[in-house]
Design a protein around this nucleic acid. Structure first.
Lengths: 332, 332
DNA sequence: ATGAAAGCGCTAACAG
DNA sequence: CTGTTAGCGCTTTCAT
């Protein structure tokens, strides 16, 4: 592997000139030619490590997420990676497996790696990252979830609205007993959706029974057991909505298993995954989030910070969700 | 951010001693204490960029894959990331969106980034990466797919066996006209599965009609249109097997849409995704790959290379697939 | 066990 | 436009 010095030797020019050339500066046409030839001939490739040491930039962004084996996150990351690489950044991915200690450790790891910026889907209120985050100076954009009380850019879905409108839609269709399967307490999105739901219960005069709110852990099994709880109630909900993809799968498995007809016996609204929705019989009514927009906006905000054109105040964007109506809700 | 020099100033020791200490070398107990205190007090954190420049190691592994918004890859990456981070490596992910030029560009990018090693799921025979790959000296482990003629470690599924055995299973159940929906020609796994299928056609005396082999592009739509082609044949296959998750979804959508009963009218075997399989009615018989084992083995092989205990000859491991029998195949 | 010094490959004043 | 030079933060002989 040849270095800038080898090029200098080969061309007779100084390393400074070569550095300038490599960074798009002006050099004499003849020297440009010479350099192009030398670069090709010596198969020169920039050592980004060395450059990074000098410039204090790694052109690397850390992406810290709960898990990777989850279609919601992996789709989001896919869009993020495309947007970042288009801007010349590489993406270091760390998953913390839903664990607060791992979350902190991975954050520390990324910071230590010298990432220029961070895209972060934090655990939620049980997160231990607040201090480390505020102490470090790397720009952070929260994605999908955020912390209460932290001062940084965030790009979120309108989770409150998603839950509120979904319950509203069910109410319009005559449902009064509406079950909801939420994520764990303390997870930002789950809490917001919870509030949207309870507000809808008030506004639309829905049945306020506490057992209509079940909490899963976003896994398939938990979706299944939550739905089974609903089915075992003396007075079942007439409709259930589930707030992520995996739990939606679990809920449907429970219904299949119990031989419950959708939507005749129970109406159901799923979350996040259009593809799944179409394979189910009947096709599922679902709430989808604008993952592409969220990813692109988050990357944009981060790049603005990295390039220093952001000003002092933070930006928080919320994207509305979309209700895609199919056949899994019965009008009663 | 404090550096090793600040520590030197603070403790009165030399940078050499401090470097030694930081790397686990022996120092006098009293100095050790002093150093621990200094590190804490000055909030010292190693600059990995600087270290990397000197040691020529980045403790970073590149992972180059076709796409990220695909449950097969994202699950694989999830396992890979866990294994790599346990070994102290960070994972730079690049997706090439199934495009040969992007594949080459991203490979070049990763090599330029100074990754210590590479985990690579290449496009296949239309890949343009051969030269760059052999020219570079970074250790590479192929995952899931490999190149013909390249000399490097690889961890694969037994794709030939998967297709052969699946066709065999269908044949045992009395099927003679067996349709298969494969990936594109030139993709390693698709080619191997193709061979497995045609060998089974010979060995089990199946209907050898060429139209029974359809080629999709691994997308949902292509799965759907391939299945529609089967359905529109005057003489339909009695069973179809589909060779990835997304195309399986598409095939099922086609069946739902055409109101075709599974397995009474068409038997079907899917691929890769156990979760999906359970939400379908009836539950789907599927072929699954041992993603966790593949990921762990690939990381192990790469780490062995990075640590220099590998010897000269390459290792190619093949993991068998597993047929999970449910109710989507009819005995005829 | 510790320290002095050289240098990894590159950039950025500064001078010419 | 080009060259000289001084480092970025760390590791690594080689002395001591």
């Amino acid at each position: 592997m040849s270095t800038i010095k080898d090029i200098a030797k080969y061309t007779g020019l100084s390393v400074a000139t070569i550095s300038k050339y490599l960074n798009g500066g002006n050099v004499l046409p003849e020297n440009r030619k010479l350099l192009e030839k030398a670069v090709k001939k010596l198969d020169y490739r920039m050592n980004h490590i060395a450059r990074g040491l000098k410039t204090r930039k790694s052109l690397t962004v850390g992406v810290l997420i709960p898990r990777l084996n989850n279609i919601f996150y992996s789709t989001l990351i896919s869009h993020i990676e495309i947007a970042l690489s288009a801007a010349g950044y590489s993406t270091i991915i760390c998953a913390y497996q839903d664990d607060p200690d791992t979350e902190l450790a991975r954050l520390d790891f990324l910071l230590g790696k010298g990432v220029d910026g961070l895209l972060f889907i934090p655990l939620g209120s049980s997160s231990k990252c607040f201090n480390l985050l505020t102490a470090s100076n790397v720009p952070v954009v929260m994605v999908d979830r955020t912390f209460e009380g932290i001062e940084c850019d965030a790009v979120l879905s309108d989770n409150f609205g998603a839950a509120y409108n979904t319950a509203g839609y069910l109410s319009q269709n005559g449902h009064r007993r509406i079950g909801v399967i939420l994520g764990p307490e303390g997870v930002y999105t789950a809490d917001e959706r919870h509030q949207g739901y309870t507000q809808a219960v008030r506004d639309f005069n829905l049945d306020p029974e506490p057992e209509l709110i079940q909490r899963g852990n976003y896994g398939i099994d938990s979706g299944r057991s939550c739905m089974e709880k609903f089915l075992s109630m003396k007075n079942r909900p007439s409709a259930v909505f589930v707030t992520n993809y995996e739990m939606t799968i679990g809920a449907i498995i429970a219904l299949e298993y119990g031989n419950i007809k959708i939507p005749d016996e129970v109406s159901i609204i799923g979350f996040d995954n259009l593809e799944l929705a179409q394979t189910i019989k009947p096709p599922l009514t679902i709430v989808t989030q604008r993952l592409n927009k969220i990813a692109v906006e988050a990357v944009k905000l981060l790049l603005d910070r990295l390039r220093g054109n952001s000003g002092d105040n933070v930006t928080v964007k919320k994207f509305s969700t979309e209700l895609i109506v199919r056949d899994s809700v019965k009008r009663i």
